Simulated scan of single mutants.
Amino acid sequence: MSTPQPLGVEGFLAEARSELDRVSPARADELRRRGALLVDIRPHHDRLAEGEVPGSVVVERIVLEWRLDPNGAHRIPGFTSDTPVVVLCNEGYASSLAARDLRRIGLARATDLVGGFRAWAAAGLPVRPGGTPAIT
């Protein structure tokens, strides 16, 4: 039996992104205003220093799949398997991997924000002070 060749992080990221219809900050804002769930997976210190997207839900990456499994016993309320979900991190790398994983557990409309929170803020979109406690 042969061992598969490692993809390396760039290949792993490209593979994840090939499964996503990634969105721009403007499109993410439109989706947010139409009821999409924006999920912020950034560490507390980044959110505290840079702010957060109004209406976003802060979920620790370590529990993301458990809190967003549409049929899971530990899911947060307020969404279904049909809800559009936009995951954001600092710059749009970790969020691509997270969104791919959410699609695999049943959120077919999960994607991520190109450029992450920093692209959102640079586009002049609304930002609230950071520090919201994460869902753990």
Rank of each mutant, 00 (worst) to 15 (best):
Val39Thr: 11
Arg109Ile: 03
Ala123Cys: 03
Ile135Ser: 11
Thr132Arg: 15
Gln5Thr: 15
Pro129His: 10
Glu50Val: 07
Arg61Ile: 05
Arg75Lys: 15
Gln5Ile: 13
Asp101Leu: 08
Asp101Tyr: 04
Pro54Ile: 05
Ser2Lys: 10
Ala119Asp: 06
Gly78Arg: 00
Ser2Pro: 14
Ile135Pro: 05
Glu60Asp: 14
Thr132Gly: 00
Ala28Phe: 11
Ala110Arg: 08
Ser81Gln: 15
Ser56Leu: 02
Phe12Lys: 04
Glu15Asp: 10
Leu102Pro: 07
Gly51Arg: 11
Asp101Lys: 10
Glu15His: 04
Ser2Trp: 06
Ala94Tyr: 08
Ala99Trp: 01
Pro43Gln: 14
Ser56His: 08
Trp120Pro: 03
Gly116Lys: 09
Ser95Asn: 02
Arg32Lys: 08
Pro84Phe: 00
Val58Met: 10
Gly131Ile: 06
Glu65Lys: 14
Cys89Ala: 03
Glu30Leu: 06
Asp21Gly: 04
Asp101Met: 09
Ser95Gln: 06
His45Asp: 15
Leu97Trp: 06
Ala14Asn: 13
Gly106Met: 02
Asp40Asn: 09
Phe79Trp: 04
Leu48Asp: 10
Glu15Ser: 10
Arg27Met: 09
Ser56Gln: 11
Asp29Leu: 15
Val58Thr: 13
Glu52Gln: 14
Asp29Met: 07
Leu64Phe: 10
Pro4Arg: 01
Val127Met: 07
Pro70Gly: 04
Gly106Thr: 03
Trp120His: 03
Phe79Ile: 04
Arg67Gly: 08
Ser81Gly: 11
Arg104Pro: 02
Asp82His: 14
Pro84Gln: 04
Leu68Ile: 08
Ala108Ile: 03
Leu107Tyr: 06
Ala119Ser: 11
Leu31Gly: 06
Pro129Met: 09
Val63Met: 02
Ala16Leu: 05
Leu68Trp: 04
Phe79Glu: 00
Arg61Gly: 13
Arg109Asp: 12
Leu38Asn: 02
Glu50Tyr: 05
Ala121Leu: 07
Val127Gly: 05
Ala99Met: 06
Arg33Trp: 03
Arg22Ala: 14
Asp46Gly: 00
Gly106Cys: 07
Arg104Trp: 00
Pro84Asp: 07
Asp40Glu: 11
